[in-house]
Each structure stands twice: as C-alpha cells, then as structure tokens.
C-alpha cells in the first residue's frame, strides 16, 4: 500500500500550540523582554543587555535566598520521603482500613495553600494558637515571629503535614501493585523484614519514588504561599525564599528588570535540577538492566 506523505498533520497540533503560546510562551517572553531592557513607564524601553542578570547574580541577597531554598528542599525531601515510605508500609492492604487511611491521607492535599498557611499561622501563635500556647505553657520558649529556628521548624512541620501524604499515596500505589507471590516466596526463602523491604518493596517502588522526589523537589523549591502567610519571610529574612524575594522585588520595590532576570534564573535552575534528578534516577534503573542486559 502506498503511503502519501504531506505535512497537513501539523495542523492537528495547532490548537495546542496556540494554547501553550498564550498560556506559557507569551508571558514568558514578556519576562524575557523586561529582563534585557529598562523602562521608566510610558512604554519606553532601553536596552540593558545583561546588566540585570549581573546585578542579580552579584547580590548576596539572591544567593542567600537560594541557599535557604536548597536547604529547605533538602530537609523536606529527607523527612518526607522516608516518612512517606514508612507510613505507606504500615497502611492496611485490605479491609475497611483502606478507605479510611486513604481519605485521611488525602485530606491535607485538598486544602488550599493559603488556608494551610492560615491554619498554621493561627495554630502556632503563642498567645491564642493551640500549639504555640501549649508549648509555651509547657515551658518551651516558642515564637515563630521572633526566633529563626522556630520559624524554620514551623514552616518545615507545616510542609511535612501538607505534603507527606503525596509521597504516601504514591508509595502505597507502588506497594499494592506487588503480587502476593513475592511475599510468599520471601517467607519460603526465610527473608527478614528488612530483606523484604530492601529486595522486594524498594525495587518495586523505584518508579513512583522518582515521581515523588521530582514533584516534592519542584514544589518545595518553588514554595511561596505557606511561608508567606505564616512568617511573611521573617523574622528578618530568615524564611525569605527565592519566590518571596522575587515578589518583594517585583511588586514591593517595582524593580521589574532585576525581578525578570531573577525569574529567568530561577526558572532555569528548577529546570536544570529537575533534569539532573530525572536523569540520575532513571539512569540507576537503566544501568541495572544494561548490566543484566541479555538480549
């Protein structure tokens, strides 16, 4: 049968192209526009070259916020991934406990981000908040508006409370897909609980863990709403992450040029790190099957 070749099929992707253009490319281009030019209003633009980028990359303010972001993401991943796996391992596999657990786990994910922030903002207040007041009554000097450590602890605990569920649900999905025969074989082979985890459960969770780590990294690296509502970036600049700093710069100080340059740098960093994560984690799997290779 003769196949006729033409390029008309490209028209099929046109709607998507238009949509993406308006939702992503055009706004992004505006940012690019601001990043390389200077403006004093009146729609007058002057070429600025790489001036804004140099300014951003030279400022200690940017690098400090970046360091905070990296530290925050690292801590979040180190807590949420093992904790998520642990909870998923202990969730029931059948019976009435399954829907109960799933609903309980899904609840935090359903709450809007600024509401989560407000909940913890009130919860942690030392004058009226249940948590803050109780802690202070117990003799713990806890005040997230004054103390850097307290502020960080609050933001981290809040994020763990909000997002560990996501890791749990993903891991749980991976776990329930393991056929019973694997556990039976492990019993026959006399495997310990640890060996079952190490050689059966963990390998089977490989893929979902990749997704979980990627999602949690990107989300935590872009975190804005919750810490903004709770601490507003304070005390001082202690919890000012890149996104909070960006908003301060763009809307607070109306420095559109540096803010645009920073946005682009921020965007590229997230893109780069996600790519690194993805390549590393998928390569671990590929290397293994290449070794076993076969045909």
């Amino acid at each position: 049968m003769e196949k006729s070749w033409n390029n008309r099929a490209w028209f099929l992707v046109l709607p998507v192209l238009v949509l993406v253009a308006f939702s992503a490319v055009v706004p992004l281009m505006t940012v690019v526009n601001y990043a390389f030019q200077d403006t004093f209003g009146n729609n007058e633009f002057f070429w600025a070259g790489t001036e804004w980028f140099e300014q951003v990359l030279d400022s200690s303010r940017f690098w400090e916020a970046m360091a905070r972001n990296l530290a925050f993401s690292a801590i979040i991943l180190l807590i949420e991934v093992p904790l998520g796996i642990l909870i998923a391992l202990n969730m029931p596999k059948s019976g009435w406990g399954v829907p109960v657990c799933l609903v309980l786990m899904a609840l935090p994910l359903l709450i809007p981000w600024n509401v989560v922030g407000t909940i913890w903002q009130v919860f942690g207040r030392s004058d009226i908040g249940l948590l803050g007041y109780t802690l202070n009554q117990l003799g713990v000097d806890y005040n997230y508006t004054r103390d850097t450590t307290d502020a960080w602890a609050t933001v981290i605990v809040m994020d763990v409370w909000h997002w560990t569920s996501l890791v749990v649900l993903l891991c749980y999905a991976g776990l329930v897909s393991i056929p019973d025969a694997y556990y039976q074989a492990a019993k026959i082979d006399g495997a310990s609980r640890w060996a079952v985890f190490r050689f059966i459960q963990l390998p089977k969770m490989n893929r979902v863990l990749l997704i979980a780590v990627l999602l949690r990294f990107m989300d935590s690296f872009m975190i804005y709403t919750e810490p903004f509502v709770v601490t507003g970036g304070g005390p001082g600049n202690a919890t000012t992450f890149l996104s909070i700093d960006l908003v301060k710069m763009a809307l607070g100080q109306f420095d559109l040029g540096p803010a645009a340059a920073m946005s682009l740098v921020y965007f590229l960093i997230i893109l780069l790190l996600s790519w690194v994560f993805y390549t590393v984690m998928t390569n671990v799997g590929v290397e293994r099957s290449n070794q076993s290779g076969g045909h």
Binding site: P179, A181, Q184, A185, K187, I188, F199, P203
Partner: peptide, 21 residues
C-alpha cells in the same frame, strides 16, 4: 511458621529478586 516448617515451594509465576544477580 513457614520458616520453621523448612519447606521449599515454587510458584506458578516467576518470582525473582530483580536487583540481585
């Protein structure tokens, strides 16, 4: 328990530990 009974069993569908040689 299965371990204490010291029984070997082979199942219908292959069960291998993927990450091991």
């Amino acid at each position: 328990s299965t371990q204490e009974r010291n029984i070997a069993q082979v199942f219908q569908f292959p069960v291998v530990y993927d990450t091991m040689t």
